[in-house]
Nucleic acid binder design. Structure first.
Length: 419
DNA sequence: TCTGGGGTCCTAGGACCC
DNA sequence: TCTGGGGTCCTAGGACCC
């Protein structure tokens, strides 16, 4: 039988932090979002305290300090590196892998029967935990949606779970629809209004009625949960990505144009570097700046976009356009709290059509400048050199006061071991 | 004082056309 | 009484995910 498996790293960001802080292994640990704003990862100890996911840090500060919780600012450099170790290990063990997020991957499981599937999952779990050191949970089923549920089910138990046929049927009566992948707050409320609470309730309903009430998404859900898989495994890698976004909230709001402009410059540098790293060029640029989401200024947000005459990845050209766009909507009355850029409409840099009237000598020089530019920044850390002002610290830069070292990707921050 | 950042996909509604 | 109808394309916004 051919099953779909799901690998999920438990409390991933917390586990990454613990990897280099063994003293925190059975201690409560939490990781904060950018700007140290929200809780985005919790160890089991913190979950048991009743601290919800995504809650603003300031709301639970007292609870956290009372329980002596160790908090970290998010350290994506570290998490990305650990993630790639997990994924490459998984790739050695199974034929087909789809990286779904930084801490999850779907994969194909070819096994003679369910017992063998459980065995195989155990083997994957053991290998990853031994080689990489972060705890993982695995699920397998006929469809992605059920596999996802299976991986959650034994998270605190054996860590592996296969749900096929009768085993899955047994679950449906007690599985709340709100727990199902793809059903968020809105949809689960609408389902409740129609007296649909558990998976069994939904499966007992008439499919055409479900289609009418809940559209395409409802149909897919219905099929996935009836073991009629809709979503296939597909390599959704970075080459097929459709947009690159770089945005960030400021530490404090600002009405100054120079501050917002600095932020925009920084984000253009950041997004363009990523674009080149992927070997892509873009034809779409959007610039946005918005006030605090929770203030009276909510409706005064601005954004502007443009289509570029030819596909590019040159930071300097993007900077020019970005600042023109900012000029077009910037409003000196508004206290901006967040700014960013979005790049889109990608094409491959190798096969991209050059501008019909572009001067090829200039283009070749530009390319060499950018190669050197990227090489220097890669060697000495991001944004060591920039085109014009692109300050990564200052009035707009977010707070990251509890950051851990980049243990695995920066020579200066390697952990030292004393014998 | 203090509420993330980066994505994808679907839908409804308007514009336009014949 | 009776206001065409149906198709396509585009876009903004919503919902969801991690």
């Amino acid at each position: 039988m051919k099953l779909i498996g799901l690998l999920d790293c438990n409390n991933f960001f917390v586990s990454c932090e613990r990897l280099f802080r063994p003293d925190l292994h059975d201690r409560p640990v939490a990781v904060l979002s950018g700007n140290d704003g929200c809780i985005v990862a919790r160890s089991n100890e913190v979950k048991d305290l009743g601290v919800p996911m995504g809650v603003p840090h300031f709301k639970v500060k007292d609870v956290l300090s009372e329980a002596a919780v160790t908090c970290f600012s998010s350290n994506f450099t570290l998490y990305r590196d650990v993630s790639s170790r997990v994924m490459s290990t998984l790739r050695e063990l199974v034929p087909e892998v789809e990286t779904y997020s930084i801490d999850e991957a779907f994969f194909v499981l070819n096994v003679p029967n369910e017992e063998a599937a459980v065995e195989q999952l155990r083997h994957i779990k053991q290998t990853i935990e031994q080689r990489v050191g972060v705890p993982v949970s695995l699920g397998a089923a006929t469809s992605k949606t059920i596999a996802k549920y299976a991986s959650e089910k034994e998270k605190r138990g054996s860590g592996v779970c296969v749900l096929v046929g009768k085993e899955w049927q047994k679950e449906t009566g007690t599985t709340q629809l709100s727990q199902v992948w793809g059903i968020g707050a809105r949809l689960s409320e609408r389902l409740r209004e129609h007296n649909l609470h558990t998976v069994a309730d939904l499966l007992a309903a008439d499919r055409t009625r479900v289609a009418k009430l809940f559209g395409l998404g409802g149909c897919r859900l219905f099929d996935e949960l009836s073991e009629q898989p809709v979503y296939r495994l597909g390599e959704r890698n970075r080459q097929t990505q459709k947009s690159i976004m770089s945005t960030r909230s400021f530490k404090t709001a600002s009405t100054k144009k120079s501050v917002v402009a600095d932020a925009i410059s920084y984000h253009v540098h950041h997004a363009a570097a990523e674009l080149r790293e992927l070997g892509l060029q873009c034809r779409y640029l959007q610039v946005l700046a918005r006030p605090n989401h929770y203030s009276d200024w909510t409706l005064r947000q601005g954004s502007a976009e443009c289509t570029l005459p030819a596909p590019i990845s040159d930071t300097r050209v993007l900077l020019t356009h970005a600042h023109e766009l900012l000029d077009s909507f910037f409003d000196a009355e508004v206290p901006y709290k967040k700014a960013g850029v979005v790049l889109g409409w990608f094409s491959d840099a190798d096969i991209a059509q050059p501008d019909l009237f572009g001067e090829s000598v200039e283009a070749a020089t530009a390319e060499r400048v950018l190669d050197v530019f990227d090489a220097i920044n890669q060697k000495y850390g991001r944004e060591v050199i920039t085109f014009g002002r692109a300050v990564s610290a200052g009035a707009w830069a977010p707070a990251r006061e509890l950051l851990s070292p980049r243990y695995t990707t920066n020579w200066l921050e390697l952990p030292s071991v004393k014998a």
